[in-house]
Nucleic acid binder design. Structure first.
Lengths: 110, 110
DNA sequence: CCCGCGTGTCTGTAATGTAGACTTGTATAC
DNA sequence: GTATACAAGTCTACATTACAGACACGCGGG
C-alpha cells in the first residue's frame, strides 16, 4: 500500500510538474529538476515516480497523439491534482512547523 | 551505499533534533515529531533513521550513563553536525527553487 | 520476586529511489 | 531505402529508506 505522504523525490517531481503549469511532459520535468535541484535524474527514477504519483491520484495524465515537431510519438502530459497540491502543502507545513525558530541555524555563512 | 541527500523522514528527524537544541533524546524527538508533524512515529522508523543519519555523519551521538530520574538506562544524546545542517539546507534550497513562483497555488482556501 | 515503565535493539517487510538496457516511431544522412 | 541518430517510454533488477511490532534490559515499587 502506498503511503499517504510523499517521498523526497516525489515531492520534487510534483513540484516540477506544478511549475511547468499547464501540462508538463516528462523530459521537461527532468530538465527542470536537473536545473533547479541540481540533481541528475535517470529515466527510471523519473518515470517510476511519475507513475506512482499517478496511482496515488496526485497526478492526472492525458495521452497525446504524436504530432510534435520531431519525434511524433505518444507523449504523456502530466498535471497535478488538488490532492497533489494538498499533499505538497502538508509536506511543506510539517517542515515549516518543525523548522520554526531555526532561522539562525540556517542562515548563510557555513 | 547511503545516499548523499536525505529521505523525507530523515529530514524531519534531523529537523526535530535540531529543534531540541543541545542534545536530544530519542523519545523527545518522537514526541516533537508527533506534535509538530502530526505523524505517528514507530520505534522502528525513528531509531533506524537515527542510526542511518549517524552513519552518514549528520548526527553526532554521545552515550549517557544511566543517571536519569527513572529508568536509569544508557541513553543516546543526538546532535546535528555541520554536515547535517548543510544537507538540510540543500534540501530546503532545492524545494524553494522549485517552488519559486508557486505561492498562488499554495495559498490557503483549498 | 514479579510487574510495569522507559529506552533501546532486532527482524522482517513494504514502499521509494536509481541505473541502465531495451523498444518503437520518426527523421536525417548517405 | 538502409543505416544512424533521436526522442519518448517501458521494463527489469536492485539498493536504500520507511515502518511495524516483537524482544531485551535495568530499575523502582508492591
Amino acid at each position: 500500500m502506498p503511503r499517504a505522504s510523499l517521498g523526497e523525490f516525489e515531492q520534487l517531481v510534483l513540484l516540477a510538474v506544478l511549475r511547468l503549469r499547464d501540462g508538463a511532459f516528462a523530459p521537461d520535468v527532468s530538465l527542470l529538476l536537473e536545473r533547479e535541484a541540481g540533481r541528475g535524474v535517470s529515466r527510471g527514477a523519473l518515470y517510476s515516480s511519475l507513475s506512482r504519483l499517478e496511482e496515488k491520484g496526485m497526478l492526472a495524465v492525458s495521452v497525446q497523439a504524436g504530432d510534435d515537431t520531431r519525434g511524433g510519438y505518444r507523449k504523456r502530459r502530466f498535471e497535478v491534482t488538488p490532492a497533489g497540491v494538498a499533499a505538497l502543502r502538508n509536506a511543506r507545513d510539517a517542515w515549516d512547523r518543525l523548522a520554526a525558530g531555526l532561522d539562525d541555524v540556517f542562515r548563510e555563512a557555513g
